[in-house]
Nucleic acid binder design. Sequence first.
DNA 1: CCTCTTTGTGCAACTAGTTGCACAAAGAGG
DNA 2: CCTCTTTGTGCAACTAGTTGCACAAAGAGG
Lengths: 184, 184
Amino acid sequence: MSLPHAILTALVEKPSSGLELTRRFDRSIGYFWSATHQQIYRELGKLEADGLIRALPGQQPARGQKKSYEVLPAGRDELARWTATSQDPKPLRDAMLLRLRAAAVVGTSGIEADLRRHLELHERQLAEYKEIEERDFPPGRDSTEDRLRHLVLRAGIDLETFWTQWLGHALAEFAGLTDGEGRG
Amino acid sequence: MSLPHAILTALVEKPSSGLELTRRFDRSIGYFWSATHQQIYRELGKLEADGLIRALPGQQPARGQKKSYEVLPAGRDELARWTATSQDPKPLRDAMLLRLRAAAVVGTSGIEADLRRHLELHERQLAEYKEIEERDFPPGRDSTEDRLRHLVLRAGIDLETFWTQWLGHALAEFAGLTDGEGRG
DNA sequence: CCTCTTTGTGCAACTAGTTGCACAAAGAGG
DNA sequence: CCTCTTTGTGCAACTAGTTGCACAAAGAGG
């Protein structure tokens, strides 16, 4: 139930077409709420039908043509309502942790290379976040909005830092294992 | 595509009935791959139909009766195959981070109480993990299996540590905000 | 001009996960 | 005994997310 609100947030920040949203999801909002272009177009249709957004005037809706949307007051209200509504944290679901647990009983062959690959991916993501931090949050700016967005980026940085450290740990552990098999 | 493998892992560790699995998911495997009892029963049926597990002999299948399953060789092979197969990390999807980003544009009223509540939940989870660590991983034991399982638990501990720190950070930031509204 | 690629929008079918129940068996309390 | 609750198993309908395409418009290259 969060994709519509992710889209509303992005559109409040800046009215956009489906493709522009897709691009922005790839490098901003999508860092903590990813979505494919198909999801986005489908959701834009629903949001428009529900009267929460509307196509910017001066454009006839047609295939293969840019159509930009902006948020209506009802959409802004809905977003504020949702933001203030208490929600439980989703339980974790992480395949790599599960695979390690499985490896404990069926053997570790093959998983080490993937740990290394994940480490590289997370290192790359971390570097990207740090670049964004340097570029978008130079010291001194501290409007409420900046501080909140910086806080969110900080979560991303800290999470990637956790993963790189933990994967490093895991690889060190593997280097110290005597054999490649569990008890199986 | 990981629930069947989570179940296979649990069943290799120890043959169980649906309800026992549900309980074990609530306090062990489920920490990093949660599942409801309905999901588990459905998946047990599929795994049995696929010949990866079987009901322990000496029990006729009937409603309202315990039925325990064990993993067959084909199931163990499938689990080993899956564990060794390279997989991309799933992109992050976190509603709290999204809500903060939304709060940056539609105002922060209402969200602070929920940050506090989440902080408490994560502190409780962290304490639980640490208890498990003390109980199940005393210094000295270091079979391959123990070390891998400890590594997985460590990930849980570090993740909860991250959340408690970050939420503390966020609340400190809120305490310093001059007003309760964004630019809207 | 005419094909070929890129940009942009979208449908349809599928898979995974959630919610809301149903119902049998067994024990608990009168 | 008879109801009432708990334990255990499971179906059905729904929601969210993914995968695989389709196809129009516009620009690129001959």
